[in-house]
Amino acid sequence: MGDASILQAVLNGLTSSGQYILVALGLTLVLSIMNIVQLAHGEVYMIGSYVVYYFSTSLGLNFYLSFIIAVVAAGVLGIILERYFLRPFRARPDKAMVLTAGFILVFQNLVLAIATGTPKTYKTPYEGAVLTIGGSALSVERVVIIIVAFVLIAALFLFIRFSRNGQAMEAISQEREGAALQGISVDRLSAIAMFVGCALAGIAGGLVGSLFSLLPTMGGTVLIKGITIIILGGLGSIPGTVIGGLVIGFLDGLIPLFTTQYVASLIGFIIVILILLFRPRGLMGHESP
């Protein structure tokens, strides 16, 4: 295997990782603050892609503007879900989670009704552009995804570590009642978590949508990857999510070099199961609460 194909594989690994981590970080945020796995998270990602498609292709708007609209729309959708659907079930996270499962069907069918089941595609202004590094050609589209993803991951780290709201989120994830007793409003921070989490999913969907064709069911795979990542990383841990995302992303990028796509995803999950056998709380999970 030549250097060029290794570089290509690393690039693919980073692209997948970046995309998965953006989605999984939203799941992690919502899980730590609201105690639920937001099962319709993949659909928020899907809606992000479709909004970009709709504004840039159907309405002919500038791609960047369409992208921003998609991100804001995804974030606002998150706030609406939290405020009107999840908040009433604050004391019963199990019910809230079943509700998010219902929203998978609602969103998929809504998009199906509006956009039909025909696969859609859209183009970025930099489609087909190539960056040549050390003799190998790298797709600018992938490089953009990698840069945006890792800049956002760094920004989220800084937000959690240094901002007042970020510290409040950390506090809630470690000790809910203790946090409430300091005057931290779980309602307010749940809304912020849903906004940030869904906006990140929207960003991932908007960026990645140009690489594939869009289908109303495209959120499913992403959700499975996201759930695998947060379990692998140690539930609720942000550094764990990033590491878990890199593991899954690179398995996705590297294994297909040696075998077929189908065997690759099988091997990926077997490796995850092996890791969890030895570290049942995940890579970065706390030993005991």
């Binding site: 007042r164 510290q167 409040a168 950390e170 506090a171 470690q174 000790e175 009642e177 203790g178 946090a179 007793l181 300091q182 005057g183 931290i184 706390h286 609460p289």
Partner: peptide, 23 residues
């Protein structure tokens, strides 16, 4: 000061105190 204290176990003493002044 709640029963069983309800501190933020994985945060430093300093961060715990700062969160006391959250508002």
């Amino acid at each position: 000061v709640p029963e069983s204290r309800k501190l933020f176990p994985y945060m430093t003493v300093q961060s715990n105190l700062r969160l006391g002044a959250y508002l």
